[in-house]
Every structure is written in structure tokens, then in C-alpha cells.
């Protein structure tokens, strides 16, 4: 046995993220979200910027000279940063989920969601317990995604992120689900299936739109074959931006959906 063998994944050891600071170590080059340097807005060439962005995520209010970016559309392709590197930066922290579409539009870098995966998860577990007194059942529905979001959702179940320890599990039927996690712009061919899946899910139910496509149509937009966002077909509780959103962003979005439900319950 050499030394390196001791650290083998075949041995009994815990690989699941434990120390909250571990997960904040996302690599600095990760394209998490677009951030606008607002003191540099004066140098903007908006027409060019809008033309450069493949999903037209930017909006510019000439009167107030305010530039904003809609994370629900952004696919973090980096083109805008290449065009105007002083005005636009790409940061490694992800754009957080929002309870409504307007919340995805960010005109200031508010530094949200910099908590670790583990911290988010523990909070989530508590809230799920308060709300349901049991675990949360999720049904994933691919409504025409490119499979990128599925890769990340699958990663939630791996031993590193291990979402089950927070009381969340994926179920095989909408009839067993509390929450639908929907990806894709909803292709036209999935419209009916998505609607039926939604109808088959018992009340009270939550719907979370995952990824730029589900939020806004993303790069696939609104065409003969797509519907331009799943909220055109089913009501959406929370939008998770990103192309695709990383596991931390997903769990943050699920947490937000639970929050929304809790708030509604306390208002009753």
C-alpha cells in the first residue's frame, strides 16, 4: 500500500461536502454571472451590446442611464465581456434564483447567494421539515432541454452533493411529487406532456423553472418549435437562471420555492 492508496475513493471515507468553505472554492474562471460595472456605463454602445448578445439579455434606460441584465435570458457566453471588458465582468458566483421574472433582472451587483452549498442545504432541510414534516419529493420534467441541465440535476444525487441528506428525493411519477423541476424552453412537442404532468401533480404543488431556456426560451427563443419559457404553459413559482445552473444554484432555487410556500402558509 502506497500513501496515495490511502486517499482512494475505494476506501471508506466521506467525499460529501462537509466544510462550508469547501464549496465556496469554485474556480475563479467559472462563468457564473454577468456583472455590470455601473460607474462605466457612460462608455456604453448599447446598440452594439444588444446586437452582440445572442439572447438579448441587456436593457438600457436612456433617461436614467441605467443598464440592466436579465439573468433569465443570459447563457454566460462571454461575448459581452469580450466586447466591452471594462463595462462587463463575468463573476464566478452564480446568479441566484428568483420568485418572479422581474427578480432575475439585475441592475446592481447585490452579492447574493454567496453562502455555501452546505449552509443552503441545512437551511433547506429545516424549512422542508417545517412545511411538510417529511421529505420533499421532486419530479424532474425535461421539456426540451439540451440535456445540460439534466447533467447538473443528476449531479445533485452524486456522493459529493448528496441532496438526499437534506430530505429531498427524486420520484418517478408526478403523482408522488410536491415539486416539479422543469427544464427546456418547452418545445412545442412537449407542451401537452408538460401540461398533463402538471395536472397529474397533486396540490399543493410547486413549479421551478430550471435554466435560461425554461426561464425565457434561452438561446432557442420563441419559435415554431419552442414556446419561449415554461411559464407560457404552467404557472411557475421560482426561476433558476444559468446555462446550465450549477448544483449550488439549483439547491438555492429549491430553497426559495420552499420559502415561497412557507410565506404563503403563514399568511393564511
Amino acid at each position: 500500500m502506497t500513501n496515495s492508496d490511502k486517499n482512494s475513493i475505494m476506501d471508506d471515507k466521506i467525499v460529501t461536502v462537509q466544510n462550508p468553505t469547501d464549496m465556496t472554492g469554485v474556480s475563479s474562471g467559472y462563468r457564473g454571472k454577468v456583472v455590470i460595472a455601473h460607474d462605466k456605463v457612460s462608455e456604453i454602445d448599447f446598440e452594439n451590446l444588444d446586437k452582440t448578445c445572442p439572447t438579448h439579455s441587456f436593457d438600457f434606460d436612456k433617461k436614467s442611464q441605467a443598464l440592466s441584465v436579465d439573468h433569465g435570458k443570459c447563457i454566460t457566453c462571454d461575448k459581452c465581456r469580450v466586447l466591452s471588458p471594462t463595462l462587463i465582468k463575468i463573476k464566478s458566483n452564480f446568479a441566484p434564483a428568483s420568485k418572479n421574472k422581474a427578480g432575475l433582472v439585475e441592475s446592481f451587483d447585490v452579492g447574493t447567494a454567496e453562502r455555501s452549498y452546505d449552509e443552503l442545504g441545512k437551511e433547506l432541510k429545516e424549512k422542508i421539515h417545517n412545511l411538510y414534516g417529511r421529505s420533499l419529493a421532486i419530479r424532474e420534467v425535461d421539456a426540451g432541454s439540451c440535456n445540460g441541465c439534466e447533467v447538473e440535476i443528476t449531479a445533485l444525487n452524486n456522493p459529493i452533493y448528496d441532496i438526499e441528506r437534506f430530505g429531498i428525493h427524486f420520484v418517478a411519477s408526478p403523482r408522488h411529487a410536491d415539486l416539479l423541476l422543469v427544464t427546456g424552453p418547452s418545445s412545442r412537442n412537449m407542451e401537452i406532456a408538460l401540461k398533463r404532468t402538471y395536472d397529474a401533480t397533486p396540490n399543493p404543488k410547486l413549479v421551478v423553472a430550471v435554466g435560461a431556456c425554461a426561464c425565457s426560451g434561452g438561446i432557442f427563443g420563441d419559435t415554431y418549435a419552442t414556446t419561449g419559457g415554461i411559464d407560457r404553459i404552467v404557472p411557475v413559482d421560482v426561476y433558476i437562471p444559468g446555462c446550465p445552473p450549477r448544483p449550488q444554484a439549483l439547491i438555492y432555487g429549491i430553497l426559495l420555492a420552499i420559502d415561497k410556500k412557507l410565506a404563503a402558509k403563514s399568511n393564511l
Binding site: 425535461d142 426540451g144 432541454s145 439540451c146 427546456g184 424552453p185 418545445s187 412545442r188 412537442n189 412537449m190 406532456a193 432557442f220 427563443g221 419559435t223 415554431y224 418549435a225 419552442t226
Partner: peptide
């Protein structure tokens, strides 16, 4: 199949 047809070629 073709439930995820998104019109990529046309796009």
C-alpha cells in the same frame, strides 16, 4: 422521439 425538437437548423 423528437419531443425535444427545438428547430435548431432553422434557428
Amino acid at each position: 422521439l423528437f419531443y425535444t425538437h427545438k428547430g435548431v437548423e432553422k434557428l
